[in-house]
Design a protein around this nucleic acid. Structure first.
Lengths: 167, 167
DNA sequence: TTGGGTGCAAAGGCTTTGCATGTGA
DNA sequence: TCACATGCAAAGCCTTTGCACCCAA
């Protein structure tokens, strides 16, 4: 984290792209076509979890000259600005999605359901963790600031396809 | 997974190393000093989460001739035999610990508390997730088989050191 | 004896970095 | 103009793989 200012932008700002531009300006960063294009790719695919390579391919459709290094650098920037979330499934690729946080500032990350069959990723919100975190604070004195929950299993579609739950 | 037989060993087996040897024999694998040494390093450090490099350094104290590749290959083997668990903190290193599962077969993985200050990792058991998994099955039709929960925050020691919780 | 295991070095694969060039403010 | 941003290629870094030698069974 380079210490970017994250809270200078009011909620009244109408357009996500305008918010982004203002955020860049606030931090003395330049507004470039590459940065706008990368954020747009991610914004247009909420709930999709794209690898750097996938983002690169999407952006290249409109900006064939862009370099993969720029994608990586921009991803890092967007992460530090809390505009995107990083997800690691352990398959060797870091994945990114537009942040839910960027809408409601106080919420934790949502959780992920990963289907072991088709690989699709589903998101869900749950507040069960809040109780757990209180319990941990009481018993262990550990103060939870953030969490990452990944549930692995089989999604409805795949279960129905196989005609049973005993995969 | 290469389809190793995991359940051939009874609970009556007295020594962890003897269990391991029997497991290797059962699967037609050879008992080597390197394999024994690597499992011992991990067995002697329950709750520690070692990287391959760290395991390598530990084993080298008694077996200076061992190669890093052997450590990686053995780690993979131990994982497939469910004797060790893999943990990914997103820092670029895969970490390993002796499996809690290897004792009680039916339990899920335990969860991890990761201190953002000192980097220590604490483990805890909790059954809150069971309720959550039922709820997910009911509402989304998603059948959870395994989960991975990482909670990031500040441990008791670090909170006390700083003299406050507002780090 | 002999096929699996090991050590070494090289290769893989994702990500970061150096550097000269380009460009937004 | 000029510092920041970009593109390309090279380097980094963790991990895996190829291959000849070794050794447990």
């Amino acid at each position: 984290m380079h210490g970017y200012k994250l809270d200078e932008i009011g909620d009244y700002m109408p357009d996500k792209q305008e918010q982004f531009k203002a955020l860049l300006r606030t931090n003395g960063l330049k507004i470039t076509n590459q940065r706008l294009a990368i954020l747009e790719v991610l914004s247009n695919r909420p709930g999709k979890h794209l690898t750097a390579e996938e983002i690169y391919e999407c952006v290249r459709e409109d900006h064939p000259e862009i370099g993969l290094a720029t994608v990586y650098r921009t991803i890092l920037l967007l992460s530090e600005l809390n505009l995107i979330d990083k997800l690691n499934l352990g398959d060797g690729y870091a994945r990114y999605e537009i942040s839910a946080k960027s809408c409601e500032e106080n919420s934790h990350h949502h959780h992920h359901l990963i289907c072991l069959d088709c690989g699709n990723i589903y998101a869900f919100q749950d507040d069960l963790l809040e109780n757990l975190e209180e319990k941990i604070k009481e018993t262990l004195g550990f103060e939870v600031k953030d969490h990452e929950v990944k549930l692995f299993g089989y999604c409805k579609n795949c279960i129905e396809k196989k005609g049973g739950t005993d995969i």
